[in-house]
Nucleic acid binder design. Structure first.
Lengths: 126, 126
DNA sequence: ATCAAAACAATAATAATTATCGTTATTGTT
DNA sequence: AACAATAACGATAATTATTATTGTTTTGAT
């Protein structure tokens, strides 16, 4: 049976407070403000729990640590090669893709992600 | 100035010989047949070089080590949650997406990937 | 209030990848 | 063909990211 904890609540809050798709380490640093003794392992443990429960997404990039996202409704991402930041993309979600793929392949398709790579507006002007 | 090496040539050959999107370790094991003394670091080093030169792609999955792909023309992937394998998807590449995104965001867009997650036909029937 | 189990902090362990370093191989130049 | 410069090598240490372990504390159902 799942039990609540102050720490998990705060991790959830910190993650939900940003759109920067932070790493576990970033969450750790921020949760420290209210829980100075929290352990990084606790942050990893709870981020995994949140992902497991469908309350957060784990993103994965070509290099660097995993990132987490409290926005769980389907949306796409673009990563900036230069600054490494990941941004949400406002494109409408492509519909019918998954069904098309199921018909085509016989797979059971659960989800899909679309990831763009490029240079963000800020980095272009530097 | 880049110099050739027998090892790099063999790594390239082994990677091109499969459609399984292997890990560095798998490539290492296979290259060992012709170069028993090769070092894993050499495999990593050369896979990175191939990626850098645009002769291979580095894929990234939600869990587990990075995977490499000698097929560089744009195509999409589907990962099986159960067996962990990654397969090529025969869907036509979506055109115009990147341009649309550039207009929308001011980003310079270089590439995009589409990754499906699901259960492959084989694992469904087990 | 009791008590089992869940969660914690601290930290060791593991997995994946990259860096270092002394040696070997490749390649342009004599 | 021999030479010199340096890229690449193999062995291995170091680093990074994440997960597992362990003894203690907190939670929540009874």
């Amino acid at each position: 049976m799942r039990k609540n904890s102050k720490q998990r609540e705060e991790i959830r809050r910190v993650l939900a407070s940003t759109k920067t798709h932070p790493t576990a380490d970033w969450v750790y640093d921020n949760v420290k403000q209210s829980f100075p003794n929290i352990s990084l392992a606790t942050v990893y443990r709870n981020l995994s729990l949140l992902v497991e429960e469908g309350q957060a997404l784990k993103l994965t990039s070509v290099s660097g640590p995993d990132r987490f996202d409290a926005t769980i409704d389907v949306h796409y991402h673009i990563a900036c090669e230069k600054c490494g930041n990941i941004f949400d993309v406002n494109l409408p979600v492509i519909v019918g893709l998954e069904e098309q793929l199921e018909t085509l392949t016989g797979f059971k398709v659960k989800s899909h992600t679309v990831n763009f790579l490029g240079t963000c507006t800020k980095c272009r002007n530097e």
